[in-house]
Design a binder for these strands. Structure first.
Length: 155
DNA sequence: GCCAACGTTGGC
DNA sequence: GCCAACGTTGGC
């Protein structure tokens, strides 16, 4: 049973092009500091799961590419680094609070903008579009995944 | 830069 | 356990 996810990243920090340029086109997804999103990584995300790579907090927010989870669940290294903006003084290697997981590029797509997503009736149920949603990782249903691929012309 | 919405913190 | 204050997210 393959799962599907939408993962938000600020392109100024990690864009789809950064993912494409990374070794093995794989990045450790660090910086998640929300328990619900962390629990998705810990409990529900599996190697092989599909990922919609979403650019947030930028001029043109939207889905910028497709990726997949490739495993590598581990304590998020940035929580122990005092120089990192993601440093968490209340975490410790003995009892890490935050996790990272490895994500590999599948392919870059045209930008499916947030505006277009909001106008697409078949995407209206997507959690990322719900009012007040702030989660950086949200589950995507198989129907929503297929609808996104269809809209990208890559079904 | 603004602001709505949400999660977390901490006093009680 | 409640809830007000605060900080963060993220679109606009």
């Amino acid at each position: 049973m393959t799962g599907y996810w939408l993962m938000k990243s600020e392109p100024a920090e990690a864009s789809i092009d950064d993912l494409a340029a990374a070794p093995a086109q794989t990045l450790a997804w660090t910086g998640v500091r929300n328990y619900q999103a962390r629990n998705f990584m810990r409990d529900d995300m599996r190697a092989g799961d599909g990922v919609l790579f979403y650019h947030s907090s930028c001029a043109e927010p939207g889905i910028a590419g497709l990726a997949r989870v490739v495993g590598g669940l581990a304590p998020d290294a940035t929580q122990f680094d005092p120089a990192s903006p993601y440093f968490d003084a209340r975490s410790s290697p003995a009892a890490p609070r935050w996790l990272q997981i490895d994500v590999q590029l599948q392919r870059k797509t045209r930008l499916l903008t947030l505006a277009e997503m909001r106008h697409a009736p078949e995407l209206a149920t997507m959690q990322v579009l719900q009012r007040g949603n702030r989660l950086s990782i949200t589950p995507v249903t198989p129907a929503e995944w297929q609808a996104v691929l269809a809209r990208l012309g890559q079904a």
